[in-house]
């Protein structure tokens, strides 16, 4: 095991025509790591919220806008009934305090196969491509993002950032290091593996509904 590691590294160095990097060279790499160079980013003038909604809808997600946090359960219930979805729900603990409809059967544990709908708090959204950033935590288990047939994501307008780099930066600001899983979700699950025909709901959610607050 150790032998394989050492041999591979030795071959790499041999191929590169040098020995292990000198300390000053590794220091340069460490500095680069701490402050990576800016790569080209798509420039755009469109308003962040408009763009996020437009991009999400272009990939078959739906978006509903509400004024206030307390409006979320009503909007969620509307989406549920409009699409005839059974009220077997998993709700991220981060949202558990809201007043959910009493006829919902819901919990905040990991999603099992019987969960039909999930309601998940977003960490951020990236306007560049209209992508939601969902991070794993006890408030938002990863299974909620993939096991249920339908997913609702709750996003606040002020959580929308311009580029991916901004989202990574936001994450670093929390000071908590990287969570175990970061899911960047840009629409409902899809496949084009049969005759290049796009079909929604391949393995993950068939419907992705975003409730935008603010």
């Amino acid at each position: 095991m150790r032998a394989a590691r050492d041999e591979i590294l030795a071959t790499i160095r041999q191929s590169l025509g040098r020995g292990p990097l000198e300390p000053d060279a590794t220091a340069v790499l460490a500095a680069r790591m701490a402050a990576p160079p800016q790569h080209p980013r798509p420039a755009f003038e469109e308003d962040l919220t408009t763009r996020t909604i437009r991009k999400l809808e272009s990939r078959s997600a739906t978006v509903a806008r509400v004024a206030d946090w307390t409006d979320v359960p009503r909007a969620a219930e509307q989406f549920r009934t409009e699409n005839g979805i059974e009220p077997r729900v998993v709700i991220g603990a981060g949202l558990a305090a809201l007043a959910w409809p009493s006829h919902w059967s819901w919990h905040s544990g990991p999603a099992a196969p019987d969960a039909v709908l999930s309601v998940t708090p977003a960490f951020a959204a990236i306007a560049e491509t209209g992508t939601l950033m969902l991070v794993a935590s006890p408030d938002s288990p990863t299974t909620h993002n993939f096991v249920p047939e339908h997913q609702i994501v709750v996003l606040k307008v002020e959580q929308i950032v311009r580029h991916f780099e901004d989202a990574w930066w936001c994450r670093q600001q929390t000071g908590a290091g990287l969570p175990r899983v970061v899911n960047l979700v840009s629409g409902p699950s899809r496949t084009a593996d049969i005759e290049q025909t796009i079909q929604l709901g391949a393995h993950g959610p068939r419907r992705l509904h975003v409730i935008l607050v603010g």
Binding site: P141, T143, V181
Partner: peptide
């Protein structure tokens, strides 16, 4: 649709993984 960044196994307070 999905870009996923995974870091290590399930953590103490994680509910899944």
């Amino acid at each position: 649709t999905y870009t996923t960044v995974s870091t290590g196994p399930r953590r103490l307070d994680d509910l899944d993984g």
